[in-house]
Structures are given as C-alpha cells and as structure tokens.
Simulated assay, not measured.
Amino acid sequence: MGAQLNIKSEDAYRLASRLSELTGESLTTVVTRALQSELDREQRLRDKAAMKADLLAIAADIKANMPDDVTSDHNWLYDDETGLPK
C-alpha cells in the first residue's frame, strides 16, 4: 500500500463522501482531484501576483529613467494650419 493520509474531520469525510457518491469515483480520486484543483488555483494566483510585481517593477524603472520634461503635448507632430500629421 502507498502513502496514507489520515484526516480527522467529519466535515472533510462528509464532503469527500458526497462528492464520491455524485461522481462515482473513489474517495482517493475525489480528494486527489480536489487537492490538485486547489493547488492549480493557488499557483495561478501566485503567477498573476508575480507577473503584476514584474510589470510594476518595469514601469518604475521606465519612470525613473524618463526625462523630467516629458509631457502629453503632441502638438509638434501636427501641422498648425491643417491639423494633419507633419
């Protein structure tokens, strides 16, 4: 027999048993699938948080290296008389 997991919770046993009844799968299968699902969800959350931190660091680096006189005025790109791009 392989490794064992002994959970001393009536709620956990009840939930696993009910899911096992609904799916027709063994208790081991439903517990394994539920744990894998939760692990996948947690990993996705951490991956998103890491990506957000990376993007914020990149933005901070860009901001730190931008000249102080940068504005949103882009009039120099357009002709004063026609308003068309130069």
Rank of each mutant, 00 (worst) to 15 (best):
L84K: 15
R14L: 09
D68F: 04
N75G: 15
N65S: 10
G24V: 02
Y13P: 00
T28P: 00
R46G: 02
G83A: 01
L77E: 09
Y78W: 06
D68M: 05
N6V: 13
D11P: 01
T23N: 03
D11A: 13
D54A: 15
A49H: 04
Q36C: 07
E38W: 07
W76H: 15
S17N: 09
S20M: 02
K86A: 03
A50M: 10
D40K: 09
T23G: 01
I7G: 05
V70M: 07
I62R: 03
E25R: 13
S37N: 14
L39Y: 07
M1I: 10
S72W: 07
A3Y: 10
I7P: 03
K86N: 15
L22N: 12
D68N: 10
T71A: 04
S20L: 01
A59S: 12
D47I: 06
P85Q: 03
D73Q: 02
Y78N: 02
S17T: 10
T28W: 03
K63P: 02
I7W: 06
S9T: 02
D68H: 06
D68S: 10
E25T: 04
L84Y: 09
L15Q: 08
R41C: 03
D40A: 14
V31F: 01
P67T: 10
L39D: 04
E38I: 07
L19W: 03
D54S: 13
L77F: 09
D11Y: 11
K86T: 08
R33N: 12
D54Q: 15
I58L: 14
D40E: 14
L77M: 12
A34W: 00
G2C: 06
A60E: 11
S17V: 03
R14W: 04
D11R: 12
N75C: 06
S72E: 13
D80Q: 09
L84W: 07
L35T: 01
A60V: 04
D47R: 11
D79A: 01
M51E: 15
V30H: 00
D73I: 02
D40F: 07
H74M: 11
L77N: 05
L19S: 05
K63N: 13
Y78E: 01
T29P: 00
L27N: 07
K86F: 11
K63A: 15
D61L: 12
L55W: 09
L15T: 07
A64G: 04
A34N: 00
D79S: 01
N65P: 00
S9C: 06
A60N: 12
D40M: 09
L19R: 06
V30T: 00
T29W: 00
G24Y: 02
L22P: 02
L84A: 14
A34V: 01
Q4F: 11
K52T: 14
D40G: 04
Q4R: 15
D68I: 05
K63I: 14
D40L: 11
A60F: 03
E42G: 04
D40W: 05
G2P: 11
A50S: 14
R46S: 08
A59N: 08
L15S: 06
A64F: 03
Y78C: 00
T32F: 06
W76D: 13
D68P: 06
S20A: 14
N65R: 13
I62G: 01
